[in-house]
Structure formats: structure tokens, C-alpha cells
Amino acid sequence: MRVRAGRMTYAVLIVFTVLSLFPLVWTAIAASGTNGRLARTPPPFWFGGNLPKNLGIAWTDANMGVALLNTVIVAGTVAAGTVLFSTLAGFAFAKLRFRFKNVLLLLVIGTMMVPPQLSVVPLFMLIAELSWTDQLQSVVLPALVSAFGVFFMRQYLLEALPVELLEAARVDGASGLRVVWHVVFPAARPAMAVLAMLTFVMAWNDFFWPIIALTQNGSPTVQVALTGLGRGYIPDQSVIMAGALLGTLPLLLVFVAFGRQIVGGIMQGAVKG
């Protein structure tokens, strides 16, 4: 039941808002000063004058233009591919009958639990074998294997796609692909949107594997580019924070600009169990 919100509700929500935004705002504050300023007591609460300068240093030092472009390509491709593959597989696992289904599903769920740090060595050997080092597909292709995506789409489609709808389409004479096209995708769209966003953000922020697979002069993603910041023995915290801000800002802008749609998408696509 929706009750009109009282003052307490607003008070608590405003506290929550402040806590959610504060670390981000403070990243900008830290990026706007100098090292010395960060060392003061009490710590700075307002912006200093160096924000443009530090952002500029971070931008050129980290080769950020190329990095941003690469990251958009990587995250976009990974998101599109993952959503496509996960929806198809999730649909099959949710609604179709085939041999070894349960075994394969268990395999999928099992891989969700495998810690990703370890695959790095064999994966790099594989990538090296294919001569893909420092090329974007070396981070794109492995990321397409999203067991979580399959699991997520299956859970959603279990509920969201009534069997009757499928059968009606079949009786109608629609072949497999047309069923997928006209029935499954429309039903799955909210969850696809959520998965796309989740995957995009994850691919955008991934750093562990890209640091190994890519180099800064080749085809760096944002997170790879940022590891070069700090100028070695003399890391400048303000510049590092400026870099962190640069890496986050594009996503934040998207979230603010399309906040309504993204939130709506998450709420529609939230797995109902």
C-alpha cells in the first residue's frame, strides 16, 4: 500500500542520497586540489582551483581519448553480444526441452561460481597463441561468456514468457527463429535492457584481465590507461583522483541523462523469482 511519505521518510532518503553521492563528490573535490590540500585537517570540503588542470594532465597522460573510444567499443560489443547469447540460451533453458538440459544448466550455474582471477593465465596463453595480445577482441570475446547472463535471462523468462504464448505461436506455424523474434525477444526486452546495462557497466569497469591483455600504447581501455597515471615514484593523488573521475564521468552522465529509462528498465526487468 502506498502511503504518503512523511517528513521522516524524506529525512532518511536525503541522508541516503547524501551518503550515496558524497564519495563521488569528494572524488571531484580531491581531484580539484593538490596533494598538500588533501593532507589538511580537517580535510577539504569544497573545490579547489586545480580541477581543469588535473583533469587535463590525467587526460593527456592516460591517453584518455583513445581509451574512452576503445572502452565504448568494448563495453558496447560485450553488452550486445552477451545479451543476445544469454537471451537465446536463457530461453532454451527456461522453456524448451532437450537432452542434457539439466546437466548443461548446472554447468552454467557452476561456472558462475568460478573465481575469475585464475583463468587469466591459461586465457593469456590462448590469446597469445591467437596473436590477439593488445587487440580489443582479447577482452571482448572472453567477456561474452556470461554464465550470470544466461542464469538471469532464464530466471526472468521462466515467469515472463507464458507457455501458452509459445504454443500459440507454434500452432500458428511459426518456425523457431520467428518465435524467438516475435515472441521471446519482446517478452524478454525489459530483462535484456537490464542485462545490457549490467554488462556494460561491468565491462567498462573491468581492470584485472584488461591490464594483462592490453597495453597503454596499443589499445587501452579506460581502466588500463588509468594504471599509467601517477608518475611512478611520485604519484600525485589529485591527478589520480582526476583520472578516476574521468573514467567514471561518462557512465555517470549516461546515468543522469537516461536515469529515468535505466531505472524503469531495472524495475521492469528485475527478476521476479
Binding site: 567514471t248 557512465l251 546515468f255
Partner: peptide, 24 residues
């Protein structure tokens, strides 16, 4: 809607960026 969008912004921050600022 404002509260909802705000609630989601920390999620857009990378682990690396978030940890850097929390260390400080």
C-alpha cells in the same frame, strides 16, 4: 525519480575508483 537515479550512481563507479576514494 531523483532518489531512484541517485541510488544507482554508486553502482556506476568502478571498484578501482570507489576504493581509491574510500582509502582517502
Amino acid at each position: 525519480m531523483f532518489f531512484r537515479v541517485v541510488a544507482l550512481t554508486p553502482y556506476a563507479t568502478s571498484v578501482a575508483a570507489a576504493t581509491l576514494v574510500f582509502v582517502l
